[in-house]
Amino acid sequence: MTPAAIGLILVSALLHACWNLIGKRTAQTVRFYAWAMGLGMLLFSPLLVWEWSRVSALPVTFWGLLLASGLCQTLYLTGLAKAYTHGNLNIVYPLARALPVLIVPLVVLGVYGQSQLGTEDLLGMGLIILGSLALPLAHWRDWHWRDYCTPAIRWVLLAACATAGYSVLDSLALLIMKQQGMSAFAAGSSFVVLQAAACLVWMLPLIRWGFGESLRALPDLGWTLLAGSFIIGTYLLILVSMTMVSEVSYVVALRQVSIPLGVVIGVLWLQEHVSLPRLQGLAVMLVGLLLVSL
């Protein structure tokens, strides 16, 4: 990976951990994320207006990928919101971030029939997954398979699968935009606004008729606007970095540097307890991250 791509991903990881903190601390509802996505979309909409002449000329295949990506984003935010109602940040966040590291390469292999990942990459991804298995544990002696069958873990699995889905779909959509002559920033900045709109297309009916929540009650405006700007901004950096790598699996893996950041934030700001198995699991995950990024 290039230094530029690594730098963008590291900044994105910090912003990602921050907006998850806001989501956990402020409001654990799908409605909160809908408002955040909407406000973030409006804030970044000038980027789409600037590129609209080229965006409007994109082929039908692109718009199909965009709609499918919006569905995956909706499932991701729904899984995240529901998981936070049942679990702590220092458990939910690392698992939701780590599991796509395993899922995305499998999806890429299924879509393309081949993978560019080397032995060190696969070893690093394996360590990330092994480390994540220790996160739900308070004590090693208390290990039981039921630790992974809680409501929080089930929602995390939904969020992780959805993350893998939109990561691969977005990579394909960006490839089409680049083939149409758009630069990395032009493609990423316009797509992130379009994806937010596609997400709302799925999310608003789900909130109203699926969860029976009212959209009229606006969560705290300041926190919601900040979360929305972080959500859109962090993924803009990721989309640009996707155009700088040979395979999206690298980006998905290195993004997990936000995992220790999320745990530190949970401990310092939310006063969450971190057990020895969780610390050991995080250490193993960090080794895996280093292997992937080298």
Rank of each mutant, 00 (worst) to 15 (best):
L8P: 03
I9K: 00
L10P: 02
L14W: 02
A17N: 02
C18L: 12
L21Q: 05
T26A: 11
Q28I: 06
T29I: 08
F32T: 10
Y33A: 14
W35Y: 13
G38A: 09
L39G: 11
M41D: 06
F44Q: 08
S45N: 05
L48M: 12
V49R: 09
S53G: 14
R54P: 10
A57P: 06
L58W: 08
V60T: 15
T61H: 13
G64V: 15
L67Y: 10
L67M: 15
S69A: 14
S69K: 02
Q73T: 14
Q73R: 09
Q73Y: 13
Y76M: 05
T78P: 04
L80S: 10
L80W: 02
H86F: 09
G87R: 04
L89F: 03
L95S: 01
R97N: 02
P105T: 02
V108E: 06
V111F: 08
G113K: 04
Q114Y: 12
L117T: 05
T119A: 15
T119M: 14
G131S: 12
C149I: 14
T150D: 07
P151V: 11
R154G: 14
Y166Q: 08
L169R: 10
G181R: 12
M182P: 12
M182F: 11
M182R: 08
A184V: 06
A186F: 10
A197Y: 03
C199V: 10
L200C: 08
M203L: 13
M203T: 11
L204C: 10
W209V: 12
G212F: 07
E213P: 07
L215K: 07
R216A: 14
L221S: 13
G222R: 10
T224W: 07
A227P: 06
F230D: 01
I231T: 10
Y235K: 01
L236I: 03
I238W: 05
L239A: 11
V240L: 03
V240Q: 01
M244P: 01
M244R: 01
V251K: 00
A253V: 02
S258I: 04
P260K: 06
P260I: 00
L261D: 00
L268P: 08
L270P: 06
Q271W: 12
L282P: 00
L282Y: 00
V284E: 05
M285R: 02
V287L: 12
L291D: 04
S293Q: 04
